[in-house]
Design a protein around this nucleic acid. Structure first.
Lengths: 143, 143
DNA sequence: TTCCTTGCAAAACTTTTGCATTAAA
DNA sequence: TTTAATGCAAAAGTTTTGCAAGGAA
């Protein structure tokens, strides 16, 4: 399956997004981008690898990690640490928060305006706030 | 070094804390508790292991993980996921939040009353909020 | 005895690295 | 031609598991 099998308009669009973040758009990167960036979602490296291989593509694990780390460093995606094991790559880079269903592990976005802070602490001297990670842990309601 | 080398009052105190959480107070567990629970701190499993071995104790990695997981499950400590790699065990179980210095990796407590929410989202139907993890990422302020 | 805890080694799992090959500028 | 990206395998790091031995109830 060649990169040309993707919709040309989509390729063009992803090309611009990658280039706009200083990322050279290679075939593998476009593949990964087309899998991940299409809609807001949270995928593990393993899921991205499996998704591409299900399309019949030949991709290596190293390239997956290289690319996901590159995307995260250049601001195309966000890396989330939720459980203790693997981490998640979030295609939604708008500021937002998360619900975390502790039982199922599921992550759901919480949009920015559903949370308002009345008070936040001053950062220590010489430091500035780089971002806020808010995870609302959920459990099933007892009867 | 026997467990008796610990202050008897401390042992008694830890004994009660463990028992109060349904954890049988064995020698190794008391050792780990005395290292971790004495003051608010964030330690990795590796750090707990090294701390005990520095005291000349013979402890296995499996026991460290067994015990830390048991402590976390019984509410004696909290497990934190911050970076993507290892996780941290927090001896402070009071509700609180964290600063995370992205450059150094350092974690600092933010006390409950330094954060106030004006609005929080409703949990999805059938779910209840189990807790809120708030991590304020910090970077050095540019000149 | 019986059940639980511990140590040790090995396994499992996630992520990174080294290096040769390939592709792109 | 020169640099960067990719695949593969191996390595590194963290956490879990299997099992035998030891301890407590």
């Amino acid at each position: 399956m060649a990169i040309m099998d993707l919709d040309p308009g989509l390729i063009e669009d992803l090309n611009k997004r990658l280039a706009g973040h200083g990322v050279r758009p290679t075939a593998q990167r476009l593949r990964i981008a087309s899998l991940l960036l299409g809609r807001p979602q949270h995928l593990s490296a393993e899921q991205v690898l499996a998704g591409l291989r299900n399309q019949g593509l030949r991709v290596s694990k190293a390239t997956i990690y290289n690319t996901l780390n590159l995307f995260a460093a250049s601001g195309l995606i966000r890396q989330l640490s939720v459980g203790s094991d693997r981490c998640w790559f979030d295609s939604n880079t708008d500021a937002h928060y998360h619900f975390h269903d502790v039982d199922s592990g599921a992550l759901t976005d919480v949009c920015l305006r559903d949370v308002e802070f009345q008070r936040l602490p001053e950062p220590p001297p010489g430091m500035r706030v780089d971002g806020i990670d808010l995870i609302i842990r959920l459990r099933r309601k007892e009867a």
